[in-house]
């Protein structure tokens, strides 16, 4: 059994996407899922795979938040949306950046998505109000932008550095 980290529903072993919410499930099998318990409480991140330990095996990308010094590391999930939760609206990002002053920094509710496409980290702005910047240059919405190790990404004014492994 795989527990979907997004909606907590139980999915049969071998599932690749959650049949309840459409989120991509961690690419691991059941026995490992049970052992895997991301330490998200401390950070109060609703996003499923964010956790504080960047050296987790299999981490392919981590985002180092420049203002707060927090590190968000991603290993199993090969695609995640970044944004902030707000009341009375149905859209939920995979990674909620509210704990990092997302609202004050102008992060949209569904701001951007990062995907791992055949080993490359791809960033797409999802038509956010305040834009997404890579190394200070605003990227076009809905256009794929390849991220390189060390890039500084800003969602609105919320800045983070990309560390690829």
């Amino acid at each position: 059994m795989i527990v979907c980290q997004n909606c907590k529903s139980q999915q049969p072993d071998g599932s690749i996407f959650c049949s309840e919410c459409g989120t991509q499930l961690p690419l691991i099998n059941s026995a490992q899922t049970q052992k895997f318990s991301p330490n998200t409480d401390q950070l109060q991140i609703s996003g499923p795979y964010a956790n504080q330990i960047p050296k987790q095996t299999g981490t392919w990308i981590s985002l180092h938040l420049l203002d707060s010094g927090n590190i968000l590391a991603f290993s199993e999930q090969l695609e995640f949306t970044l944004g902030r939760l707000s009341d009375n609206q149905p859209i939920e990002p995979d990674v909620d950046l509210s704990p990092f002053k997302a609202f004050d920094n102008g992060v949209s509710r569904l701001h951007a998505v990062i995907k791992n496409i055949e080993g490359s980290a791809i960033l797409i702005d999802l038509g956010s109000s305040n834009g997404t910047y890579v190394n200070g240059i605003r990227i076009m919405p809905n256009v794929e932008q390849r991220l390189r190790h060390g890039d500084i990404v800003a969602l609105g004014k919320l800045k983070m550095q990309v560390v690829l492994s």
Binding site: E20, G22, T81, P90, I91, L110, I124, L126
Partner: peptide, 16 residues
């Protein structure tokens, strides 16, 4: 509830 999840995923895939 399922339609909400669907809308979220569609937005994430750029299908506005």
């Amino acid at each position: 509830e399922h339609l909400q999840k669907l809308a979220t995923r569609l937005l994430a895939q750029g299908e506005r």
